[in-house]
Design a protein around this nucleic acid. Structure first.
Length: 135
DNA sequence: GCCAACGTTGGC
DNA sequence: GCCAACGTTGGC
């Protein structure tokens, strides 16, 4: 099992919308590195959902329920999508500030490569973020 | 609103 | 194949 983090601008697609819909096609990725990460996702992998822009916080957890396939929003065969399903909302959101302030999270792309929209996490990093939310 | 980081495009 | 110019993203 692998762990990931995906970003969304809440004005474009919010966690609240995801909570209502329970499932979503994760489409529109137009960056090769992000696409490669999408393609590496396996059914059952867990994905943190992060709000970029004004909020900058991790909102909750999703699960991969369909592995990568042609992105339905484009004819261009270079781009792919996955399907995500709601798992649960975090007890409270974990802010970028908290993530940047934690020594154990300094290697994640959210800190090192702020523009990447789909990134892998180590299990340890995933667990640290969950524990921050619970504290 | 600004700027840094990064990606893409196009001229050579 | 290199690099300048330009566009976009996202944090501050």
């Amino acid at each position: 099992m692998n762990y990931w983090l995906v970003k969304s601008e809440p004005e474009a697609y919010s966690w609240q919308e995801f909570v209502q819909k329970k499932e979503e096609v994760w489409d529109g990725v137009r960056n090769y590195q992000a696409r490669n990460n999408l393609n590496a996702m396996k059914t059952g992998d867990l994905v943190l959902f992060y709000h970029s822009g004004g909020e900058r916080q991790v909102m909750g957890i999703a699960e991969v329920i369909k592995e990568s396939y042609q992105d339905p929003t484009t004819e261009d065969t270079r781009w792919t999508s996955v399907d995500l399903k709601l798992v649960e909302e975090l007890p409270r959101p974990v802010s970028l500030k908290e993530i940047k302030g934690d020594d154990r999270l300094q290697n994640i792309a959210l800190v090192r490569q702020s523009r990447l929209s789909v990134m892998p996490l180590l299990k340890e990093e995933f667990d640290v973020i969950l524990s921050l939310s619970a504290s």
